[in-house]
């Protein structure tokens, strides 16, 4: 089959969506298909650029392709008779994030117009697809809530899952993720002010913009947490990352309403207990509080308590980690399923 995968991305930023895009291409090729990537950059400011971005997609024509797999808004607006959507997320600032501090869209007539255009496009063009899959119940739920559109959950597998190992639990909780406001590394630092044990925090990730990293460094200094919190903003190698997972006491992953979150799967394959928040979205589909990790309110004191708990009973923490892997394996997430369903 000749397949086109379309992604909508911010140039020079590499995150989970790009990992998924590359992984999907590689797997489809391994299954004997010819694959091309369509990559259209995200345009947001000023708001009318969103509408232009949408029009770009609608005016494009895709020929000589047997199956078109679209991952995001607005690339699913590209017309094609054999379109399948595997939705990573909607344009969330126009939906669930609209009335939150995480929405960068101005509440001006232009901003409202852009929002209207996005909603209209979703209502009109998503139903053109032969099938709509999403990467989590979270995304499916939002699509149902805001657009009354049905979809099926198709979890993305983690690449090189077999390379994750576990070693004896160390003293630190690992939080690997791109550093930005919505991933709430700031909340993680805040929590460390309230821990009562010797538990440490290791944050690793590339800041989306340098100021996000600087702000975290400043907070660590301000609260005098430099002996308890380490912040790695430089690029770390694959081997280093595996080691940081293997030797961690547990994994912390507390974004606001994450769509999916590979970190959850990484923690499970490394057999580490996961601490997440009630409003973190995707991770909640995997973690059982008290059994494979802890789910708390997004409150620094509650988080600190959970961190201390992992430190105080390392044997139990290790046991929780093992349970997380068992649970994940039982969910049967793999490329055979993904490829089979996307190409059905």
């Amino acid at each position: 089959m000749r397949i086109a995968i379309a992604n909508h991305s911010v140039p020079f930023i590499f995150g989970g969506a790009e990992v998924l895009e590359n992984g999907l291409k590689q797997k489809l090729e391994e299954y004997g298909h010819q694959v091309v990537n369509i990559r259209i950059p995200v345009l947001i400011h000023p708001p009318h650029k969103i509408i232009e971005n949408l029009l770009t997609c609608r005016f494009l024509q895709l020929e000589n392709i047997d199956r078109f797999i679209a991952l995001k808004f607005p690339v699913y607006c590209i017309p094609h008779a054999n379109k399948v959507v595997w939705l990573l997320h909607q344009y969330r600032e126009m939906y669930d994030l609209w009335d939150t501090p995480y929405c960068g869209m101005p509440k001006t007539p232009h901003g409202l117009n852009a929002r209207e255009a996005v909603v209209q496009a979703d209502q009109t063009y998503l139903p053109e697809a032969k099938a709509i899959f999403t990467i989590s119940k979270r995304v499916t739920g939002r699509l149902q809530k805001y657009n009354q559109i049905d979809s099926q959950v198709l979890y993305p597998p983690l690449d090189n899952a077999d390379q994750y190992q576990t070693e004896a639990c160390g003293d630190y909780i690992f939080y690997p993720s791109r550093i930005n406001h919505i991933k709430r590394q700031w909340l993680a630092v805040e929590s460390m002010r309230y821990v009562k044990t010797g538990v440490k925090l290791m944050i690793a990730g590339k800041p989306d913009v340098p100021s996000e990293g600087e702000r975290l460094h400043a907070a660590i200094a301000k609260y005098g947490l430099s002996s308890k919190v380490r912040l790695l903003t430089q690029w770390i190698s694959w081997e280093e990352k595996l080691k940081l997972f293997a030797q961690a006491l547990g994994v912390l992953f507390i974004p606001l309403d994450e769509d999916y979150g590979y970190v959850t799967l990484e923690a499970a394959y490394a057999q580490k207990a996961l601490i997440t928040c009630r409003d973190s979205g995707g991770p909640l589909e995997f973690v059982e509080s008290g059994k494979t990790g802890w789910v708390t309110d997004p409150d620094p004191r509650q988080l600190a308590e959970a961190l201390d708990r992992l430190y105080l009973d390392k044997a139990k923490s290790a046991h929780m980690g093992a349970g997380g892997k068992e649970r994940l394996l039982a969910m049967n997430i793999g490329w055979d399923t993904v490829v089979g369903r996307l190409l059905a």
């Binding site: 990537n37 005016f59 494009l60």
Partner: peptide, 24 residues
């Protein structure tokens, strides 16, 4: 940045407009 294009479509100007609207 990779976009599709069809040489054989009658909608040549529409497709070119799609490229033109992309302000990077």
């Amino acid at each position: 940045v990779r976009l599709p294009f069809s040489n054989n479509s009658p909608e040549i100007l529409e497709q070119i407009l799609a490229y033109q609207l992309l302000d990077l």
